[in-house]
Design a binder for these strands. Structure first.
Lengths: 152, 152
DNA sequence: TTAAAATAAATTGCACACAATTCAATAATA
DNA sequence: TATTATTGAATTGTGTGCAATTTATTTTAA
């Protein structure tokens, strides 16, 4: 049975958590980079497309909330994807402050070409299925906590 | 009892893991940003200092391996820290290709001022101690796997 | 109903992050 | 030993990522 941790121990571990999180995210993104280059996308562009493939059209604001990016990052990425011909950006007539992001036909088609991208991780993540599930759940729980704090 | 997952399920989950990892890392770094600004450091600069505080002087190459950064990122960061007066950079006489990174007195002193930085996470990570331990272990296991693959 | 506040994007400036290349020093080998 | 290969750091160019500010639009409230 593990001893009950004091506050200092929790803090120290929190600090230690930070680094592997940072390093692991970078390394996993790096694994995706090469296969993504083959279909002409960066990781950030890919994530935008994944969200749009899953949820369909939405405002830039909504997209930014889902992807944890503000307009400072997102606007240039979306303009690039528009230049590539994968998305369309247009002000909404109901409220001209909002920009609606829509997939073009080519954007929809790209989904198939990207379908083998997840295989990039094959043989690169040495975790069991159960460990991956646990990791996935803990990360999402942590994210939820951070979101909760934000909306207060 | 969970059913045995097929390969496709593992791949799909791997892909899904990628995003919360990316998002969570960004959000946690964001939490550190404000308290770090008070002692005049960015997150990357802080991680460099943490490594040097823990392990002492080492070459830029060694530092880069520990922190998962190449010279393209690390050289400018180290030059900045040198300008701040926290580290010293000098070519090693034994082998002039290597640059040895050493803490200055001010660099050592900064450690105390930074001692309360981990408290930034207090009230921001809604995970139990055990969950944090599990998350920490899984991330490190994933990192080890990635490293292993690299050295092959 | 108009002035003030709020809101969504866009812009600006700074700091990474990394691939690719260059440069200088050292090691390997013909 | 002279040539080639390798290695560590530095440089260059592109792409985020974000805080702070600006702009245009809409909402709120006086």
């Amino acid at each position: 049975m593990a001893k009950s941790p004091n506050k200092l121990e929790v803090l120290k571990l929190g600090n230690q958590l930070c680094f592997p999180l940072y390093a692991c995210a970078k390394e996993v993104i790096k694994i995706y980079r090469k296969p993504l280059a083959k279909i002409g996308l960066t990781y950030t562009q890919y994530i935008v497309m994944v969200i749009l493939w899953e949820f369909g059209e939405m405002s830039e604001k909504e997209l930014g909330e889902k992807i944890y990016l503000d307009s400072g990052t997102l606007t240039p990425v979306l303009k690039k994807l528009e230049k590539f011909g994968f998305v369309k950006r247009q002000r909404m007539t109901e409220d001209e402050r909002f920009v609606k992001i829509t997939l073009t036909d080519n954007g929809v088609k790209l989904r198939e070409k990207a379908s083998n991208i997840p295989q990039a991780l094959e043989g690169n993540i040495y975790l069991s299925y159960d460990e991956m599930i646990t990791l996935y759940n803990l990360l999402n729980k942590a994210l939820e906590g951070i979101n909760e704090r934000k909306t207060q």
